[in-house]
């Protein structure tokens, strides 16, 4: 099939763009092909299934489409032509092959209820042995590179969290230490340790929550910037970064307890000291 497309594309590149004749079958061409060959809607192109240009047929460009983003083809200039299936079979049918005896590689099915996808695929496979039916979502998820990239990004995220934790602990130790005198005075006027630690805990919750919200805002802004940059760089509509509610919730669920724990751990060492010792200058 890929060889066919190469030949087809070669033929398009070699073909002369002629002005429309309304009775010709129509084709869709990818935006990239339209841009590189300066083709417009209504132009007539000659397509051949072979590299040497035999079996040429004329088609009218009925539309220009944006190809479905495909990470596996990242960086490739997608020069594609989409034909109606009967036109494609007519174009590629070898002499001596009776019409209707061709085969197709894949059939896309849109279900009335998309939630029935798994049941439908099981049904098809049970009734038609040899045919593989797979829900579209499952097919995308099972693609190796996605799983590997997800693991890679998770590993990077873990290292970043570790580095952040270390820095956070250093900062909270310094910040708590800065308030040593105030804590010492509070102890001397009768505040129990658990009351002070509770206050520091609340402070930690507040700071960590505000910090997490700021982080989410920053990620939403950078989401747009990163997507725009990569979409421009690779000339694709692929979405590279997507901050989903689930991702946001995970980030908050990690960041807030981490921030609060760092504050409490740093404060704990301070509160174990004597009040007089803390308040002395």
């Amino acid at each position: 099939m890929s060889r066919f497309w190469v030949a087809l594309i070669a033929a398009v590149l070699a073909g002369t763009a002629l002005r429309a004749a309304d009775d010709l079958p129509s084709v869709l061409i990818s935006r990239q092909l339209a841009e590189t060959e300066r083709l417009r809607i209504g132009d007539v192109v000659r397509l051949s299934p072979t590299a040497d240009g035999t079996g040429v047929q004329q088609f009218r460009i009925g539309g220009i489409y944006e190809p479905t983003p495909d990470p596996a083809r990242l960086g490739a200039v997608i020069r594609e032509v989409q034909l109606h299936l009967p036109d494609l079979l007519n174009l590629t049918r070898e002499s001596g092959t009776p019409a209707g005896s061709e085969y197709v590689q894949r059939i896309n099915v849109a279900l009335v209820n998309p939630e029935d996808a798994s049941r439908f695929s099981r049904d098809v496979q049970a009734r038609m042995p040899g045919v593989q039916a797979q829900p579209a979502a499952g097919a995308a998820e099972s693609t190796g590179p996605f799983i590997v990239l997800r693991r890679f990004h998770l590993a990077i995220a873990i290292v970043t969290i570790l580095a952040s934790t270390v820095f956070l602990l250093a900062l909270t130790i310094m910040l708590v230490d800065e308030r040593r005198t105030a804590v010492g005075v509070l102890r001397l006027i009768g505040f129990p340790s658990h009351r002070i630690i509770f206050q520091l805990f609340l402070e930690g919750v507040l700071i960590a929550s505000v910090g997490s919200l700021f982080g989410l805002l920053l990620s939403l802004v950078s989401e747009g910037l990163i997507n725009r940059f990569f979409q421009w760089r690779y000339d694709t509509a692929l979405v590279f970064v997507h901050v989903t509610p689930q991702v946001a919730a995970t980030c908050v669920a990690i960041a807030v307890p981490l921030g609060v724990s760092a504050t409490v751990v740093a404060s704990w060492a301070l509160l174990r000291r004597n009040g007089l010792r803390l308040a002395r200058r």
Binding site: T160, A163, A170, I173, D177
Partner: peptide
């Protein structure tokens, strides 16, 4: 030493990345 060590460790983790 505590804050200095944590600072160095933090830089080490970021530097490794």
């Amino acid at each position: 030493p505590a804050r200095a060590s944590l600072g160095v460790l933090g830089v080490a983790a970021v530097g490794a990345l």
